[in-house]
């Protein structure tokens, strides 16, 4: 017997995870390459810088979204990479990206060794609505290394708009000197140091003991969890969340690659 699709009802699989994206994505904005001019570069850690870009015509973004960035050499060779947006959305037509110096990385290497205010690059976006956080639900943010970048956009948005919705950040770094945005964190943040820590602070991998207190203080409606980092970190952190009782379908993951 032939099974007929019901007209007008989109197919939905029997199991669903963090279902659709949090927002609709503007097709036109994602399709256009725009020229962006570096207006400032500031050092975050020995291997990490933040670049501020003026992007005339930038249509705005939501915390957690990323963009595609393109550098072009004189012979026409181009390299493009995805970067999370670090800044909170505002009306300034400026955005900030935080760039980790990847060993041998042709794009991150350019930012770290060549880039100066006045240089131009190209960006298109923002792209993808899956990891976006509009500020509407309690957010439990878990980042490893430079995985904290899209989460910091959420923290900054939360502050800038003085949002009441609960927000917590667990951020893992090898040591205090490698903790990106260290001076900006407040009571919402718990840093976890894996190799070295300030006096009186434990050293070790993120563990159930870090996650349990956050899941014990369940806000109304529960947490929406956002996990970002290397694949190894994302696998570890997402397993901790599941083991602590966070529903699988309310964990959104962005992995480097």
């Amino acid at each position: 017997m032939t099974e007929l699709a019901v007209v007008g009802v989109p197919f939905a699989p029997p199991t669903r995870f963090a279902v659709p994206g949090r927002i609709a994505v503007g097709e036109q904005d994602a399709a256009v390459w725009r020229t962006a001019t570096l207006t400032a570069i500031r050092r975050e850690t020995a291997d990490v810088v933040t670049v501020r870009l003026a992007v005339p015509g930038w249509a705005g973004h939501l915390p957690g979204q990323h963009l595609m960035l393109r550098l072009t050499a004189g012979d026409g060779y181009a390299a493009q990479r995805h970067y999370s947006i670090a800044s909170a959305p505002d009306a300034s037509e400026h955005i900030e990206l935080t760039v980790d110096h990847v060993e041998g990385g042709e794009v991150s290497g350019w930012f770290h060794t060549v880039a100066a205010p006045g240089d131009t690059v190209e960006v298109r976006g923002p792209v993808s609505g899956f990891f976006a956080w509009p500020g509407d639900r309690p957010a439990l943010l878990v980042g490893g290394g430079s995985g904290v970048v899209p989460l910091m956009s959420m923290v900054r948005h939360h502050r800038a708009r003085r949002l009441d919705v609960p927000l917590r950040l667990l951020v893992s770094a090898r040591g205090p000197e490698e903790l990106i945005y260290a001076r900006e964190y407040g009571a919402e943040t718990t840093p976890v140091f894996t190799r070295s820590a300030p006096d009186g602070v434990a050293v070790g991998r993120m563990a159930a003991a870090h996650v349990a207190p956050l899941l014990a203080e369940q806000p109304a409606g529960g947490w929406e969890a956002y996990v970002c980092g290397s694949n190894g970190f994302a696998e570890h952190a997402s397993r901790l969340l599941v083991a602590a009782g966070q529903p699988v379908h309310r964990i959104r993951i962005e992995r480097f690659g």
Partner: peptide, 13 residues
């Protein structure tokens, strides 16, 4: 073409 100052990129293979 919007050339990026000082960008050379990986060796062309």
């Amino acid at each position: 073409m919007n050339v990026t100052r000082g960008f050379t990129g990986r060796p062309r293979v």
